[in-house]
C-alpha cells in the first residue's frame, strides 16, 4: 500500500498517525506540504527516520523544489517526479491521508 500524505506535520497529525498503521512492504509518498516532514533537522524528522528503517519513503520532487527544500532532506529519502508518482500508484493500492 502507498500511504500518500500531503499535510505538514506541524499543521496536522497525518504523518504521525499514518506511521502507526503502516505495514511491512508499504511505502510512503510525501506530497504538497507533506514534504516538510522529510526535511532533516526539524521537530518531526525522527518520525520519517524511524519509518525509513522498515519502509521506503518518497517525496514528490516538484513539491520539494517549490518549497526550497532541495538538498535539505533526510538521507535515504527517494525523490520522484509525477511519472514516478504514477509508477508508485501502479505498484501499490493508494491510501491518502488528508
Amino acid at each position: 500500500m502507498l500511504h500518500m500524505i500531503n499535510q505538514s506535520p506541524f499543521r496536522a497529525p497525518s504523518i504521525e498517525t499514518a506511521m502507526r498503521f503502516i505495514q511491512a512492504a508499504d511505502v510512503v509518498l510525501l506530497t504538497e506540504d507533506g514534504v516538510y516532514g522529510a526535511q532533516s533537522s526539524q521537530k518531526y524528522a525522527d518520525l520519517i527516520k524511524n519509518t525509513m528503517a522498515n519502509n521506503e519513503v518518497y517525496v514528490l520532487g516538484p513539491d520539494v523544489k517549490a518549497r526550497g527544500l532541495e538538498g535539505k532532506l533526510l538521507d535515504g529519502i527517494k525523490t520522484v517526479d509525477y511519472e514516478g508518482f504514477v509508477d508508485l500508484v501502479e505498484k501499490h493500492n493508494v491510501n491518502t491521508w488528508l
Partner: peptide, 18 residues
C-alpha cells in the same frame, strides 16, 4: 489497535479518505 486496522486497510480494493 492500529496494527489491526492497518491490516484491514491492506485488504481493501479502495480506500476513500475523508
Amino acid at each position: 489497535d492500529s496494527a489491526a486496522i492497518g491490516k484491514l486497510m491492506g485488504e481493501q480494493d479502495t480506500i476513500i479518505p475523508n
